[in-house]
Amino acid sequence: MSLARTQPLTIAPPEELLEVSFDDGMEEIIEEHLRHYPTRQAALLPVLWLCQERWGWLSAGVLRAVARRLELAPAFVEGVVTFYTMYQTAPPGKYLLQVCTTLSCALCGASGLLERLKEKLGIDPGETTPDGRFTLLGVQCLGACGEAPVIQVNNDYYTDMTTEKLDQLLDELP
C-alpha cells in the first residue's frame, strides 16, 4: 500500500524574492483576512502564512512587503516571524521532514527514526540536502502522541512510524 500523500513545496529562489508584490488573488485573500479582525496588525500571522504557502519561505523582501501592506515596521514583522518556529526565513528543501522528538514519541522510538534519516540523507537536523530535496528537523510534540512516533512532512502527519515505513515513504515521495 502506498504511504506518501505529500506534494513537494514550491520554493522560490532568493533572487526572485528580493522585492515582491501581491497579485490580485493574494490581495483578495488579504482583504478577507483583514475583515476578520478589528485591527490591521492582527492579520499578520495569516498574511505571513499566505506568503509562505505561495513562495515556500519568507525572505527579507517578503517581510518588507508584508510590513508595507499592513502598515507595520519591518523590524516588528521580523520580530514576530522569528518568534515562531514554523516560519522559514531561509529557503528549505522541497520536503520538510519534521521528526517529533518529545517524550511520548521518544519512548516509542523517535530517535531511531532521526538516526535513520541522518544516515540516509547525510545531514544533521536543521540542514538541507545539497540537492535541495529534504530539510531535516527535530521538532517538539506534534499533538498526536497516541500514534507515536510521528513525523510531519510539509503539512501531512505520518503516524505510528517505523524505520521500514520511513524508507518506503522516502522512496515514494514524488
Binding site: H36, Y37, T39, Q41, A42, A43, L44, L45, P46, L48, W49, L70, L72, G79, V80, F83, Y84, T85, M86, Y87, V139, Q140, C141
Partner: peptide, 26 residues
Amino acid sequence: HVHRGAGAYICGEETALIESIEGKRG
C-alpha cells in the same frame, strides 16, 4: 474565524494566545 498559530507551545497559554491573535510575538 480560524486563526492558525505558527509553532510555539507558549501560545496555548491564554494571554500569549491573545497576543498571537493580535499579530504579535506570543
